[in-house]
Design a protein around this nucleic acid. Sequence first.
DNA 1: AGCGGCAGCGGGAAAAGCGCGATGGGTGTT
DNA 2: AACACCCATCGCGCTTTTCCCGCTGCCGCT
Lengths: 211, 211
Amino acid sequence: MSATAKSAPIVLLRQAPDARHAFGAEPPVLHGAGSEVYAQGDRADRLFRVEFGAVRIHRLLADGRRQICAFYLPGEVFGFEADGVHHFFAEAVSATGLTALRGGAGAEAAHDHLGAALRSLVRAQEHLLVVGRQNAAERIAAFLLDMAERQGGLEQFDLPMSRSDIGDYLGLTIETVSRVFSKLRAQGIIRLLGLRSVEVKKPGVLRAMCE
Amino acid sequence: MSATAKSAPIVLLRQAPDARHAFGAEPPVLHGAGSEVYAQGDRADRLFRVEFGAVRIHRLLADGRRQICAFYLPGEVFGFEADGVHHFFAEAVSATGLTALRGGAGAEAAHDHLGAALRSLVRAQEHLLVVGRQNAAERIAAFLLDMAERQGGLEQFDLPMSRSDIGDYLGLTIETVSRVFSKLRAQGIIRLLGLRSVEVKKPGVLRAMCE
DNA sequence: AGCGGCAGCGGGAAAAGCGCGATGGGTGTT
DNA sequence: AACACCCATCGCGCTTTTCCCGCTGCCGCT
């Protein structure tokens, strides 16, 4: 954990009004890497839109095992709950800007939010297939393709999260994640441009791995 | 697969109008065990409410591996998709009655459906924790508690699905499912009243296993 | 420069769970 | 009744992944 872990949002970003922020009236709030956006048990009274950076949604078992249920990247909306109380933790993966969307209880707000909620649901269910039935290499392949696609489909993209985050997202240990990355690199399927940056050389091979 | 596998709904149930069916005007449609409710790729233009029986939502990999993402029990609503196309298969687990809820595109319908969608989302995310980070015994324990709770919280309840379904839901093989059941029985934690019926003797132990 | 902390990488032993085959019980069919 | 068939159970060897270990490189601090 970084020095800013668990701290409250630290800066209200100064920024000119911007048409991209159609939902929220307020400018984005900056969260430092590792800082908590909300905790399990908090009241869930609004949604968040990621403007930049990345957010992880996770939950802990009593002995410290962690499962990251989802990552949210710029443009994506998170914070849904069924009963007004958060069942998970949300933390900034890296320096992250969030805008809050006042979640009105009205029918119109529901209509606005339903689409985003359904996208989260489909994503969670597809992730269940990966975690439940694919082996380590297949999980990493699926993860890389998903991250590439959500960042515009370019062959070169960032992994904002640590190996530990990736492991906890895919249900693997960091050792296994590291080994699979090394093997993919040795086979010329990917190139590691840095710890947090990847280039996919053979996307077809990755796609074939996921079936 | 049973004889009715993949068949269309076979009977339009004759039934008197019933106040429980507040949403749908139509009487429930009976689906035989194993019959398909919708397939991956079908148009998603309505939701379904389970009146009796059970439904599984699943997806297949190219080599036949299967992940069941969710079971739906009486009173629960399923069929949500983000983009008008089903990404998963839905099949009746046993003889099942379904009522269709016309999914209007309007704001009011969205409001009605948002709650059910959010319950599915929370359930999927909690299931991710089970599949991603818990061992075989913990998964079975969590599964039993979940099924018990959703059937009224009694210590004795039905498992409408086969061992194979349970395995594909929890990311285990049927052999592992069977072995864990036997171990729990040998420890006096559960009692098997039949292949599809369980009595939980020590719910506290099960709860402790899930942490 | 030197030091300490942290993240990633890799090796070897160990465990968990899988795959296969055999057995047995229940159900429906001939 | 006899049979076939499906499903669940169980034993055993094997693969995969984890667990525990130390090494390396980077970064910030003194």
